[in-house]
Simulated assay, not measured.
Amino acid sequence: MTATDPTAPFKDDLRFYLQSARDALLWKLEGLSEYDARRPLTPTGTNLLGLVKHAASVELGYLGDTFGRPSGEPLPWVAEDAEANADMWATAGQSRDFVVGLYHRAWAHADATLAALPLDTVGRVPWWPSDRAEVTLHHAVTRVVADTQRHAGHADILRELLDGSVGLNEGKDNIPPGDARWWEEYRERLERTAREAEERSSAQRSP
């Protein structure tokens, strides 16, 4: 990308929102034990370190292989013969440093692709059906931003469930001020409101 690249402002916007989600995902890991970083907190096994592993794999695929720029990183968990959901959790032998390091390398590789190619560059997603495998870089980056932001939201909820920590990113919590008592009363108010709404709905359905 050069200083005269007319798509530079669009690339800057895309990268800004991608980087904010990347940073959030890693920030949500800070200060956690190995167990809490990996423990499944939903019935489908969603966990913080697994979200990072998945996000790294997505970037290396959509913003690497898709545009003929393989990273060289071995990703056996996304191979055709891998077990289902293998990219969504880290094995005991895959350390936190390994997963975080992989993610940092994925950032660098994806950012290099974004810098090197025009947004209208057409690539092919290797794992999509051949009749619709072609995508532009603009489409691919937008898809990765959406995916990463979605998982950053998952991470917000997982971390709050673990230890009550909340916040949009480091240094900016983006929530109203309030002590523990304020939040307890706020939650109780929402609970009462939900029950009231259910009662009204049930009454309206009654013959």
Rank of each mutant, 00 (worst) to 15 (best):
P74C: 08
E30D: 15
H139N: 06
D156M: 10
N85A: 13
L60Q: 12
R189G: 13
A197S: 09
A180D: 15
W27F: 12
G167V: 11
H109E: 03
A197T: 09
W89M: 09
S206I: 00
L75M: 15
A37R: 13
L102Q: 15
F67N: 00
R96A: 03
D179F: 09
G45R: 07
G50L: 09
S165R: 15
G45Q: 06
H151C: 06
R124I: 11
V141C: 02
T66H: 01
A155K: 06
A194M: 02
L51E: 01
S71C: 07
V141M: 12
M1S: 13
A92I: 06
W77C: 11
D81K: 13
A140N: 04
G61P: 01
Y186C: 08
D5F: 03
V125I: 07
V52S: 07
R189H: 12
A146F: 08
L137E: 02
V135S: 02
A110K: 01
R105K: 13
R159Q: 10
R181D: 15
E83T: 11
F67C: 01
R39E: 11
L119T: 10
Y62L: 09
N174W: 11
A90N: 06
G178Y: 10
R159S: 09
R69V: 02
S20F: 00
A3C: 01
S201Y: 11
T113C: 10
H138C: 06
T44G: 08
D163I: 12
T42R: 11
V145W: 01
G123C: 05
Y62H: 09
L117F: 02
D36F: 07
N85V: 03
N174H: 00
L137I: 04
V78G: 01
V125P: 00
A155C: 12
E185S: 08
V141Y: 00
I175D: 03
R159Y: 12
A112F: 04
P129D: 10
R132G: 14
A108H: 12
D97R: 09
V141D: 02
K28P: 04
N47T: 11
L162Y: 05
V135T: 07
L102S: 12
V99M: 05
W183H: 15
L158V: 14
A116M: 02
E188L: 14
N174Q: 10
W27Q: 08
A110D: 01
W77M: 12
L14F: 04
H138F: 13
L114E: 03
H104L: 10
L161E: 11
N47R: 03
L168Y: 14
L63E: 04
E198H: 03
G50P: 13
A55H: 04
A110C: 04
L114P: 00
E185P: 05
H109Q: 07
Q149I: 00
F98H: 14
T136M: 05
W89L: 10
L18Q: 05
R39V: 15
D173I: 10
A37N: 06
E73F: 14
A152S: 15
P207K: 04
G72Y: 08
G123D: 05
R205C: 00
P129K: 09
D23M: 05
D120C: 06
G167M: 07
L168Q: 11
T7Q: 15
T193N: 09
